[in-house]
Simulated assay, not measured.
Amino acid sequence: MRRSSRTGRGSAHRVGRGSGAATAAVAVLALSAVTAGCKAQPAGSAPAAPSPPASSSPTDDAKPGKDGTQSATPSASAKPSTKPSAPPTSSPKSTPSADPQATVLMASGSQGKQVRELQARLRQIGHFDRSPTGYYGSVTVTAVQSFQGKRGLSRTGRTDTVTWQRLLGMTHAPTAAELNPPTARPAAKPDKRCMTGRVICISKNSRTLSWMNDGKVVSSMDVRFGSQYTPTREGTFSVYWKSRHHVSSIYHTAMPYAMFFSGGQAVHYSSDFAARGYSGASHGCVNVRDEGKIASLFAQVRNGDKVVVY
Rank of each mutant, 00 (worst) to 15 (best):
A107P: 10
S227H: 05
A254F: 13
R123A: 13
P132S: 08
L209C: 10
S77K: 09
K293P: 03
N287G: 04
F237M: 11
S85D: 14
P186C: 10
A299V: 01
G284R: 00
I200W: 01
M255P: 01
A33E: 00
E178D: 15
H246S: 14
S57E: 15
R151F: 09
V309Y: 00
V139N: 02
D290R: 03
R130W: 07
S11G: 13
K150W: 06
G37Y: 04
Q114Y: 05
S203R: 06
S154L: 04
A54P: 12
A72E: 12
P181V: 02
R207D: 11
T69L: 01
G137F: 00
H13G: 04
P100T: 01
P231Y: 06
S110H: 11
A299N: 11
R121F: 03
S206T: 12
Q145Y: 08
V217K: 04
G226K: 01
L179G: 06
A43G: 11
N180Y: 12
R151E: 08
G169K: 12
K306N: 05
T95P: 04
P64R: 02
K306D: 04
S5F: 12
Y269G: 03
T69Q: 02
Q300K: 13
T232K: 00
S51V: 06
A46M: 13
G277C: 08
S282W: 02
R121M: 13
N287Q: 13
N180K: 10
A184K: 02
K63E: 09
I202E: 00
L118V: 10
L153H: 07
A188C: 07
Q165Y: 09
S243Y: 04
K204R: 14
A143I: 05
D222P: 02
S57I: 15
Q114R: 04
R224K: 15
R289M: 10
M212R: 12
A275I: 01
H252M: 12
M1R: 14
H283M: 11
V308H: 01
K83N: 07
P42S: 15
P256W: 13
S270M: 12
H13F: 09
P58S: 05
L118F: 10
Y229P: 00
W241I: 05
S203Y: 06
K204Y: 09
Y136R: 05
